[in-house]
Structures are given as structure tokens and as C-alpha cells.
Nucleic acid binder design. Structure first.
Lengths: 341, 341
DNA sequence: TTGAAAGCGCTAACAT
DNA sequence: ATGTTAGCGCTTTCAA
């Protein structure tokens, strides 16, 4: 930006009027003569004048920038959240500054501080897996910078939240497996550090309970990625040959599990039915296609930014705000990996 | 940012010194007494003072923000480019503002203007498929805002560029298919609007030529996505039953083609060998796993931001700059879809 | 060793 | 209908 940007002053000088006249003419102020307006806007267009947002920010004390911190941009869920956020933000004249924590607590703290320094008007955050301490967020809240958490929310902080109905989605998925005749269902679960992981486990447990299927803690294993699933699945099946269904915390894990199941010589879905969670692009690419639970990432993004923008519009103090929670319903997408009947 | 941010003035007032003293103390200026420095920094820490980047930007005429325009964030190649960019940008004290064109020319123009208004120090751009007119970029260059194009570059503009060796990657891929015994190779190609599509076609043609395999224009079809590939492939095979290899412009197309091939009752790779391009995450998930050409997205991002930062450091005028082009070599990843021998 | 003043680009209250 | 002035937060020349 050290370049040769045109300013209001430049226009004023060339036209022999004052900067304020130019400013007013440009915003169609009623007390400026039509003649002046015409001359000013014409020259502005000719020179390619664009208001300096930085000057505007300094003056208005509003940067019109929203900070976004997500664990990893390469995850389809998060990139669709971004799309939802951007869509609405741009409509409302806000820009979005995106940072990745890469699941690291340290990075998350640095990102938060950087965003604070950049004077973002508000923050949208999905927590890193590592994060246990929330002081960096509390600090922003103290300075009246509103935060909306989404998906991986922060239980310790009283802020607005958007969560996916993980419990309901998991319950429905497991119920579906049971409906397809499964009785011994393996759950490959996520970090119980994260609420979302715990909620999915609870959905799993309650669905079993509801159907009078005894819970076997051995059938809940911690495994939340492709490589581990690929490595572990065959062994688990060897140990528990009666497993007839698998429900995983995300799609990549499901895809790893499917490979493992095939390696163990079992058929999907006849011998073992599989349900993932996320409904990522890959789920249509696998063989068989993968049943999954859609989390409506775009919708999550839209609701999160809406809550934040409403907060900014209302302009209440942090202490006066009553936190809202929006729950986004999931959708079960049944494909070939679980369809038996 | 309308919140209660601590300023240098606040600190000055509480300490009964002038703002300039505080400013100097905070940056460890040699002419400030150790005592003052200590008192100032202590209070600054206590109050959680963080410099207002917006004020700094206005004063220094450098926003320390890089604008990034990409077609779609959900594509793995682009999200890995982002990671490469962010990594280096943050190290060098820059923030990145990301916009998606969604392949739309209109969006791209709006994004460019918005980024100009936000006074970004420079721009990283990968063109939308629709874009044929470059006036919006030319306008920034005129105002001395440097642009580095990557992957989908702009041939009409003399700027720095980072390109993937699409020609070489395509050549190698097709040579590999030929080495595996293929003689009738179908190429599902991308938009010939984009240079990258044309380069891949040329790599395909030259590899055939090199191996004295006659070119059959009927075996080059325009098809660059999963759905179309799935819909078209079986028909194409029916029409040309001697096809024994497929090379696609990207992985999603390859995955669609693989499904189509299976539907046509052919075996992969025995009857028809398949090579994709991109080496996306999905390529390990398919059955059989998909051979592909890795484009090193992270590396592309790193080189692009490096070129831009060097440009900003050198601080030459646009007209004095000699454009650089960096070519990122591809890597062929052979998996099961093409391995016959 | 510190303070006062000006200015980055813009707008709005207050003149005129 | 237009101009003058001050100030957003910060740094830096110049003065003390």
C-alpha cells in the first residue's frame, strides 16, 4: 500500500475545493450542489479513487473485519463453514481474516492476540484439540470483543455458540445401523477432550440402550483418523469377530475402517455395516459409497456469523449479553456402506 | 473494536508522562531512562496493551496484510496452497485476507476492489475460470500494488508467477501409462480457457508423439468434474472399446471415470489404467487407489508468498520490475489404478 | 531524557 | 452550499 493511492485530498486539490466537500459529495450529502457532486464523482472515477478502509477504521473504531480461527482449513467441514461465513459477511460489508491453529494451543493463542492487535470487530472460533486454558479468549471478552464459538465450543466461557447436534446425529446413525440388523456395533471415537466427541459417544450409548442392546465398553475405541483406523480395524475384528456394524467419529476414520474390514475378509455392508460422520466429498468416492451424517457446515458458518453480526449491531457490553446457543440439525445420508435391506 | 482498547494515551495519562515517551519506552528507544522503560512496560503488560495495527497502518502506509484470491477454498490443492502461504506470511509479520471467487469473474472483480480498498500490501491470485478480462488487476498494478499469480496465471500481465509444471507432469503421467502397455489413451481435459488445461493437453500430445502413438482427437474430451465423468465415461468406452488408459485433468474426474469404467464392466488397471492429476486426499481412498500427479500445493504457496514479500522488500516501482517465474516440479505418485507390471 | 506538534486519510460538528 | 478544525492512535522531527 506504499503505492500511489488516490486520496480525497488529491481530488480536492485538483478541483480547488475542500476535502470535506469531496467527502460529502462522494456520499451524496444533501447539502452539496448537484454540480459539485457531478464533478467530484467524475474525477473520483477517473482517478480510480477508493476510500482508504484503514483511515475509516481508525476513525470509526470499527475495522469491519471478523477474525476466524479454525483448526485446519483442509478439512471439508471447516472449508464449508468458511464459505457460509464469507457469504453473509460480504453481504454485510465485513471482511474475514482467517487463521489456522493447526490444533495447536500455542498457535491459537498467537492467532487470538494477532487478531486483537488487528482490531477485528469480533471473533469466530472453533477450538484446537489441545486447548484447555481459555485465558486468551477471556482477555478479548474483557475488552468487549465478542466471540462466537462454533462446533468445537468452549464450555467454560459464556458466549454465543453454534453447535452441531452431534448427540442427535450419532443417535440416529446408530439407530439406523440397528434397524439394518446390527447388534454388535463398534464405535471409533474422537478425543474426549472435545465436547463433540463426548456427545457422539453419548448418542451411541443411548441408541444402544433404547434398543436394549447391552453396552460393551470394549467396543468403544479411541481412533479418529484414516491411518490409525486402517492399522487397528483388522485386529479389532479378529478380537471381536461378532462385530456387525461400525460407527466412526468422522469419515476419514470410516474410510480407513472400511479398508481394514475388507482386509479382514469381511463384506460391507453384508457382514459389517459402516456409518461415518461429516458427509465429506470423499464419501461418494469410496467403494461402497459411505453412509454418513451431514453436519451442514455452510449452515453452521451462516448461523455463527449471523449471531456475531447481531451482537455487533446491538452493541451491548459483554457483561449485559445473554449468550445464545444455536443447534444445527444433522442429516443422515444413507449410502451403500450401511444399506442392507 | 468499539470496545475498551487500551491506548498509549491511557498509559501516558496514568503515568503522568507524554504519549511519545510511552511510545519510545515501549520500543526500547536508547534515550529513555531504564526507570521509565520499566514502569511503562509493566503498566502496559498489566493493562494488556497491544498496539493498534490500524493506526500503525495508517501512519506507515503499510497494512501488513496480503490479499489472496482463489477459486474455491474447498479444493484440496487450494487449501494446501493457503497453508504454505500462511506459514511464511506469519513468520514475516504479515496477515492474510482470503477471498473466494467461486470461479466467477464478477466476484473476482469485487474481491480485487475490496482488497484494494483494504489497502493490502500485495495480492496473490489464482484466476477464476470465467475471467478473460484483466482490467481489475491492471488497475492495482497501476497503483503499485504488486500481484503474484499462481497456478492459474494471467498471461496478459507482466507479473511474478508461480506455476506448476503441468506440461511435464502430464507428459510423465502419459509416458507412465504407455510404459504400462497403454496404446489408446483417453484424455479428459479441463477448460482450454486456462493455460494449465492447455499445458496438460500438450504434455499428453507430446508423450504420444514421442512414443510414435498416433494422436486421435476423438480421445480428447472436455470433462473436468466428477459428475460429468461419471455420466460420460461408459458411453465413451462403448464408442471406443479399444481404450486402455485414461488420463484426467484432475482427481475428481478420474474418480468419476473409474466408476464409469467399472459400470462398463471393465477392470482397473487390467483393462483400463487410470491416472489422475492433483494427488488429492481422496486418491488413497478409492478402490483401487488412484495414481496421480502431485502438484505440491504447499510449495506453490510458499514460493508465491516469497516472491511477493521479496517484491515488497525491494520496493521497486511496478514499471522497473522484471517479472520472475517459478516453476514447481510435479511428482508422479503411482498407485493401484495404473500399476500393471 | 522528555515533551509538543504534526500528520497518515477520513469525517462531522461547527462555522460561514 | 462549502470551508475549517479537530481527532481517531501512533510515531517522529524538532525543541527544550
Amino acid at each position: 500500500m506504499s503505492g500511489t493511492h488516490v486520496t480525497i485530498k488529491d481530488i480536492a486539490k485538483k478541483l480547488g475545493v475542500s476535502p470535506s466537500t469531496v467527502s460529502r459529495a462522494l456520499k451524496d450529502h444533501p447539502e452539496i450542489s448537484p454540480k459539485t457532486k457531478k464533478v467530484v464523482t467524475e474525477l473520483a472515477n477517473l482517478l480510480g479513487y477508493k476510500p482508504n478502509e484503514i483511515a475509516l477504521s481508525l476513525r470509526s473504531k470499527k475495522s469491519k473485519v471478523i477474525g476466524l480461527i479454525i483448526p485446519e482449513i483442509v478439512h471439508h467441514f471447516f472449508s464449508s463453514v468458511i464459505s457460509g461465513i464469507e457469504e453473509i459477511a460480504i453481504e454485510e460489508g465485513y471482511n474475514v481474516m482467517i487463521f489456522q491453529s493447526n490444533e495447536s494451543y500455542t498457535r491459537e493463542v498467537l492467532n487470538t492476540q494477532g487478531l486483537y492487535s488487528s482490531r477485528v470487530d469480533g471473533l469466530l472460533v472453533s477450538l484446537a484439540k489441545e486447548t484447555k486454558d481459555y485465558e486468551h479468549f477471556r482477555n478479548l471478552l474483557k475488552h468487549n470483543v465478542p466471540i462466537v464459538f462454533f462446533d468445537r465450543i468452549c464450555e467454560g466461557l459464556k458466549t454465543d455458540r453454534v453447535i452441531v447436534d452431534d448427540y442427535g446425529g450419532a443417535f440416529e446413525a446408530v439407530q439406523h445401523l440397528i434397524d439394518q440388523g446390527c447388534k454388535r456395533i463398534l464405535h471409533m471415537s474422537g478425543s474426549d477432550q472435545l465436547l463433540i466427541g463426548r456427545n457422539r459417544i453419548n448418542g451411541y450409548k443411548d441408541a444402544l440402550d433404547e434398543n436394549n442392546i447391552p453396552l460393551d465398553e470394549d467396543l468403544i475405541v479411541k481412533c479418529d483418523n484414516y491411518e490409525d483406523a486402517l492399522a487397528m480395524t483388522a485386529d479389532i475384528i479378529k478380537k471381536h469377530p461378532d462385530i456387525d456394524g461400525v460407527f466412526t467419529v468422522n469419515d476419514f476414520t470410516a474410510i480407513g475402517a472400511m479398508k481394514g474390514i475388507k482386509q479382514a475378509g469381511k463384506k460391507i455392508p453384508e457382514d459389517i455395516a459402516v456409518m461415518g460422520f461429516t458427509n465429506s466429498v470423499s464419501s461418494t468416492f469410496t467403494d461402497p459409497t459411505l453412509s454418513s451424517v451431514d453436519q451442514h457446515g455452510t449452515e453452521v458458518g451462516r448461523e455463527a456469523i449471523k449471531l456475531l453480526l447481531k451482537r455487533l449491531k446491538d452493541n451491548e457490553l459483554e457483561e449485559d449479553h445473554t449468550p445464545q446457543t444455536r443447534i444445527i440439525r444433522t442429516d443422515m445420508i444413507v449410502r451403500d456402506s450401511s444399506r442392507r435391506i
